[in-house]
């Protein structure tokens, strides 16, 4: 059984292309803020590739610094959320192929 499962995986693995670029799933920010947040998130996740918590912390702190307080950031591989956010201050993106980053503001 295990073998049977493994085989198709191999095939997939061969043709699978690993995408690691930042993929914005939902964003209602203005262009300037969006690019800033994207860069920041990508940087944070690259810097703290092993520690999602510190990545989230870095995102949050930098966003607070740049765009005023009460930003929230979630970085993780699997989670669910329902948040209220200030309109025009939400970005939900994937990064590195396995990370979902949600950054929003709500004060």
């Amino acid at each position: 059984m295990g073998d049977v499962q493994n085989e198709p995986k191999k095939e997939e693995g061969e043709k699978k292309v690993l995408h690691t670029y930042a993929l914005v799933r939902y964003c209602d920010m203005v262009e300037e803020m969006r690019s800033e947040a994207m860069d920041l998130s990508a940087n944070a996740c690259e810097k703290h590739s092993t520690n999602n918590e510190s990545a989230a912390k870095m995102i949050k702190e930098n966003m607070d610094k740049k765009f005023g307080p009460s930003w929230h950031a979630v970085v993780g591989e699997g989670y669910g959320f329902e948040i209220s956010y200030e309109v025009k201050h939400l970005m939900y993106m994937y990064f590195g192929g396995n990370l979902a980053i949600c950054v929003w503001k709500c004060s």
Partner: peptide, 19 residues
């Protein structure tokens, strides 16, 4: 300031599919 609610679910396969 106007607020909205956003909800989403993150799973590896969702990310993979999206990519």
């Amino acid at each position: 300031p106007p607020r909205a609610v956003f909800s989403e679910q993150v799973m590896q396969w969702i990310i993979y599919d999206a990519y």
